[in-house]
Structure formats: C-alpha cells, structure tokens
Design a protein around this nucleic acid. Structure first.
Lengths: 350, 350
DNA sequence: TTGAAAGCGCTAACAT
DNA sequence: ATGTTAGCGCTTTCAA
C-alpha cells in the first residue's frame, strides 16, 4: 500500500512546529495563512519557508471545530432498485455538483440512502449533520420528503431535480410540464395521429400534464398511458406491450432510462423505430445519444442546476424555501422520425 | 430552503448541555455513548433520554480533532474528457465503494482531479489529507501514479482498477490478461478466422497481451489492432474504420464504452452484428446489456473489488503495497454470435 | 506587527 | 460508577 510514514508513530507537523521553526508565534502563522491580520513581508516569507520545509498541512478538523464549518456538502441519493448513481443522468448530476462545490473550495460527500427503514434518508442526513457539513443536496426518492423533519436537523438542504415542489422545501428542477409538452407537440408536428404516454407517473404529474395538454391542443386522445416502472426494465416491459397490440404511432417516454428499455423490446420484436413507432423521451443524457436509433429527448440543463443548487446552499443564510425551475431543450435525434431541421447532439454524438 | 433553525444564532446542543440536563458529568455522557466505561443502567437511561429530548448530535469534528480519525475515505477519479463518473463502470464502482464504506461506518468523499496542472491528483489528495481522511482510493488516469509522492502525504492510499501494478503501490484490479484471453478464445471457438483488437493500448498492456496470446494459441494473426481512444467517440471512430475496409470477422474491444461506439458506427453503415462482425468487450457494465444487439463482455467483479479495497484501507497498519487481482467472468450475450449455451445477464437484462 | 491565551466539543487518564 | 481535567490544532481577541 502506501502508508508507512517515514518514522512509525511520528506525529503530524502542527502549527506549533511551524511557528517554532520560523521563530514566530502560532498566531503569526495563522495570520500569514489566512490574511486576517497584517504580517511583515519578511516574517511572512520565513513562515512560508517553514511551512514548505516541514511539509505542513493545516488540520481542517481543528478549523471545523473552531469555526463550525467544514466547507463540505453532502449529496444524498435514494438507494433504488436501479442503483441511482448507475443512472447516467444522476451520475452526471453528481459530477456537476462536485465540480461546482470544488470551484468554491467545498468538498462533497456522496451517499445513498434506503427509501425507508434503518438506513433511511433522515439517518443519513443526521450522520452528515454530525460531520458538520454545510449543506445537503437531496435526490428525491419514491416517498416525498418531510420538510419539517429535515429542518429539525438544523442544516441547510435542497432538493435536486424535484418533481413536486412542496411548501417549505427549497428545490431546483427542470420544467417538466413545458418539456413534456414540447416533446409531445414535436411528435404531433411530425403528423403522428396518436401519442401515448409511457411512465409510472400519476395523472397530476407535470410530465403527464404537459403531454396531455399538447395532445388536447391538437385534438388527440389522452387516454393511452402505459404505466411501468421508471427503469430500464420497466421500459422494456412497456416496449413488449407496445409490440403486441394496437400500437400508437408515437410515444412520449418519461425518461431516457425507460426509453432505452423500450427500444430494446421494440428491436426484439422487429418493430421499426421511428417508422412504426416514433418517440421522444426526457433527460437528454448521453445514454440516448449512442442508442440505435439515437433517442430524441428533452435535455435537462444539469450543469446549470447543479451550479445553482450549490450556490444556494453555500450562500449565507437566511435561505428561502423556494423552487427554482429551469428550462429543458429538445434535442432532435433519430427516434422521432426524419425531420427537416438539422440534428444536434450537444456532446460528442456520432 | 430549509434552514432557519428555530432561534436565529441558537448554538447547537453540546455534550455539556446533555450532561447538565441529565444531571451527570460530560464523561458519563461519553461513556454511555461509547461504552468505554461501565455506566449504571439507570444513569445511562437518563442520559439517553436527555439526548433524545435535546436532539443532541455529537460533533464529529471534535472527535476527529481528538482522535485523529474522521472515519472518512476519499475516492479520487481523473477528470477525463469523457467525464469519469459518467462512465457507468466507474459509477458502479463508486457506488459499491460507498456501500462498503457505509457498512463500516465510514463516509465517502468523491472528487475528480485534473490529469495534471493546478488541480491535479496530488493537490486533491493533499486537500483530503488536510481533511484528515483515513484513506484515499484512486481511479487511475492517463499518467501513472508516483508512489513516492503520495506516500509523502502520510495517508494510506490504494489504486483501484489498476492496469499496471507498480512496485510500492497498493492496488486492486481485475485480471485483464486472463479476461482478454478468455474473451478472445471464446470468439475463436465460434470459429471466426480473425479477431482484431480495438483499443488505444500499448502492446505490453495485459488486455493486448491476453488477446495476442489467445490468437497465437489458435494460430491467428496478431497484427490487426485498431488504436482509438477508450471512449464512446473512440469506439465510434474504430467502428467507422471497421465498416470501410477489409474487415476482420470478429473483434475484441477493450471496454464496453468503446463497444457501444463501435456498435453505433456499424449500425450506421449497415454492418450486421454479429453476422458480419462479432465481438466481445470488457467490463460487463449494464451499458452493454440494453444495447442492440446486447454486448457480450468480461464482467469485472466490481462489488468484490470495492469491498476489498475498503477493507484494506480501513485495516490497521502496517499496510503492504501489494496488488490484488480478481477474476472477471465472461457474460454471454448477443454480440459474439449465436451460441449453444444459455445466455445470461446477471442484473435485469431483457 | 506580533504574542499570549481562551476556548471550540470531545475523549480518556486519573482521581474519587 | 462517576467526576475532573488536560489537551487535540486552530482562530481570534486583547494586550504589548
């Protein structure tokens, strides 16, 4: 491995050592390091040299104890059947959150929490409260969060990628309604006479509302809903059903994850996409970019949302428990059918 | 948001408060909490009630300062062009590492580090050293790690998913040679007369060696190597080349990431898989399970490796800088061609 | 411009 | 079985 510090049992160098080495008091070392008080240039130089020579690294646990802040954030994701960080969309999110945090000098803990039972979200957050993190970011799981119980922990928190903004809960999310509506409207523009909805979402969920709205505006029926879990496997099941029966000409799929499963099932049953079934899905992760055919999707502005979440969390209190909504953009690829406009793939896509 | 602790400026309850509330000394509170000394049942009960009533959460920064250990680990990934946690294989790894850590009461920081320059690996590890983490897990980037400079930081570290075990560096990884050899041998069993290699890997890299070995054993040529970056895009380029010219009947692709890109390019050029080009790749992430056709691959025992890495890191010193190798298993799916044996997908697969 | 010292919340040796 | 207390490494007030 890689331990065996030169001398076994050797203690780490502390501020005292540096002070002694530089012939100053510990206060001066602090001053030079933090610039909270003027230090004579010559002195500062001596201190810096001492730090260099001794390989001194400040102990942030001590700073945390003194200041009450660790300059750390925690990202808590639900432990789903489909492991969440294994979902490219969430992985991207985590990635961007970490970057945003790092830019501000914050470190990021990541963890997954059971939906209920012993290792639940609250227990996990409590753990991070104990660790004196400065804020917690929550990826929503199956059951909605109780703002009151989280507030009790006395630590700022924010819900990421929220589906249902609640009173008392600060959150950041994409505008699901508009996104779904735009996706569906686009399908309708293609001239498809029916657009079904795929996803295990209740009627009042914004994506369903947006889909229904677009259908209604065009005079299409809004009763064709395929309810399956929001996973690869769920999408696969939906695709199987689609392959069997009087199928809609087009579908709006509530997530890229599902869409990939749908595609798979359709392929297995030799149903042509987009020739027999066309679709647009939601999220715009790279998962859809390399699928065959590539999947048109509403791209969530992940970087923006991550940036904003972190900014809110590290801002000085008071924080206001508002919901911030971001606009998703339609990325045209192949699954929705041939389109006169040019196709775009923002990242690297073929 | 979710701050506004009841009274503004209200300080968190400390061990003193609990002690006062329960009518005991702070030591007794510690004893009840940590069980390092006997406590009368009745007293313990009073203390526990006080903790309950006050909603007391121990301050781990203080514990860390006192004990020198934060019970935290850090996972450092290279900041690649292809964002690393966006790679399902690494995402799964991170996920399992976090689980293993959590099981032991350790928290996990995750971060990405630039390959060089200001925000490099060493700087990042230094940051975590300052944070008093108990160990660091490194996902290898382009440039090999210098064990000496990491050791200087005085913090245990381990390289995950290593390609080149080095002297002085503790590491954990899959047996790339055997895996590649098995994959290639399987292709050869299918009767394919040529098996090319796809991946930007030098001749002495174990996967290339394994592939070459299998070819040699069967009397096949070993000079057909397509060197492209180990990304989706790289795979796509390789696939384009494959589609153009005198193509091999089969290929071994060095990672699932690339394989997905290869598949895409082949589709675009109407090259049939596995009928015209068959392949097996490496990693066995879910990425290949829902591809069309699904991708046969050498599955890395991610959970096992994660578990082992964490176990090593949290074990009491001295640590030995050895390399531990784990065996990958061939997952038969569709990309290698019709096979008499049953096909398996360990997770959920269609 | 610099130094002395209190104290952040906790653990553990020592005393009772 | 319980209490007292020193001290972990740092910041910061106050005094020099």
């Amino acid at each position: 491995m890689a331990d065996d510090v030169p001398l076994p049992k050797q203690k780490a160098t502390t501020r005292r050592d540096v002070a002694r080495h530089a012939g100053v008091s510990v206060a001066v070392v602090s001053y030079t390091l933090n610039g909270k008080a003027p230090v004579a240039p010559a002195t500062a130089e001596r201190v810096r040299r001492a730090i260099q020579e001794l390989g001194y690294i400040p102990n942030r646990a001590a700073v945390a104890l003194k200041s009450g802040s660790t300059k750390a954030l925690a990202l808590v994701a639900p432990k789903a059947s489909d492991p969440v960080f294994t979902n490219p969309f969430f992985a991207e999110f985590a990635n961007e959150v970490e970057s945003a945090a790092q830019r501000r000098g914050y470190a990021l803990y990541t963890t997954s929490a059971a939906q209920d039972g012993a290792d639940g979200v609250v227990e996990r957050i409590q753990e991070f409260a104990a660790r004196q993190v400065d804020g917690v970011l929550l990826l929503p799981g199956a059951k909605p969060i109780q703002p009151a119980v989280l507030d009790q922990l006395g630590i700022p928190w924010l819900e990421l990628n929220t589906i249902h903004p609640q009173a008392g809960a600060g959150s950041v999310g994409v505008d699901l309604f508009s996104g779904a509506r735009e996706a569906t409207a686009h399908l309708i523009e293609h001239g498809y006479p029916t657009v079904a909805f795929v996803g295990e979402l209740p009627p009042e969920e914004p994506r369903r509302l947006g889909w229904a709205q677009a259908c209604r505006e065009a005079g299409l029926r809004t009763d064709h809903v395929l309810q399956y879990p929001m996973t690869h496997q769920g999408g696969y099941q939906a695709g199987l059903e689609l392959a069997r029966q009087g199928r809609p000409r087009a579908i709006f799929v509530a997530s890229d994850r599902m869409a990939v499963g749908v595609l798979r099932a359709l392929h297995e049953n030799a149903v042509k996409v987009p020739d027999e079934v066309a679709f647009v899905s939601f999220d715009g992760s790279w998962e859809g970019a390399y699928a065959w055919p590539s999947i048109s999707s509403i791209r969530q502005p992940i970087e923006l949302m991550a940036e904003r979440s972190v900014a809110r969390l590290v801002a000085p209190p008071p924080h206001t428990p508002v919901h911030e909504s971001f606009h998703g953009t339609l990325i045209l690829r192949d699954s929705c059918g041939p389109h006169p406009d040019s196709r775009t793939d923002p990242r690297t896509g073929p």
